[in-house]
Amino acid sequence: MYSHNNIFQTELWKGGPSPGQFYNFPGTNYNNSNTGGFTAPDIFGSKRSSSPITTGTSVIGVKFDGGVMIAADNLVSYGSLARYQDVQRVFKINEKTIIGAGGDFADFQSLKRSIDQKMVEDMCYQDDIDMKPKSLYNWLTRILYNRRSRINPLWLEMVVGGMQDGEPFLGHVDLRGRAYEDDVVATGFGKHFALPLVREQISNGEVLTLNQASQVLRKCMEVLYYRDCRAISKYSVAVSTAQGTIVQGPFEVNQNWALATMIKGY
């Protein structure tokens, strides 16, 4: 409603697509017909964001007894260059919802501007109703699927968490719009290194406490720091419980370089 791109229609379905068509979003062409706009190149071909530039690495999310936690380190890389070393990649969206982002950070910042504007509009209703995590999660899947369908993806892998009607919610969305919910999710390298560490703890169907959750995330961040060359030792954690949401950190991972006897300076 208050944005120059026309995604903020409050009237139900106004300006919306016919079923089966796609919603318009910043960066998408306004008048794309169903098939024409997807692949047609310009006269000399077209180059779209087919690879990410400034990137964040793994994000890890876990559910615990009464809430959700999402962790990510504070690095945004430029290729192999550890370019920005003090950037939050986990965010509070509102009192019910948190999000963590990996992938192209510019894409995320642009997307987050839209999310933040949605939250301001939520407040303007003055009804104390906040967007719930599942709604944001579903909205993101549609945005990302829409962009992948135009072969112009938002190069992102995100973890959305929060409290949905008193129950913890945790979901994962990626650049194609592939989405799933689980008790523990991770992106990028975290899928290989961190997921097993967390799954080990909850394999017998046990639910983590808040303390256990933050401990296991700390362990995950430590392992990732050791083995992921695009990770640094500083990380932040977003926590969502029935009491609200908060971003904590930055924290330093525990490091033990005793084995690396020749290496100094850590």
Binding site: M1, Y2, S3, H4, R113, D116, Q117, V120, C124
Partner: peptide
């Protein structure tokens, strides 16, 4: 006013 506020936000974050 809301449009102006949103517009400012979009430009200057």
């Amino acid at each position: 006013a809301r449009q102006e506020a949103a517009n400012f936000r979009q430009q200057f974050e």
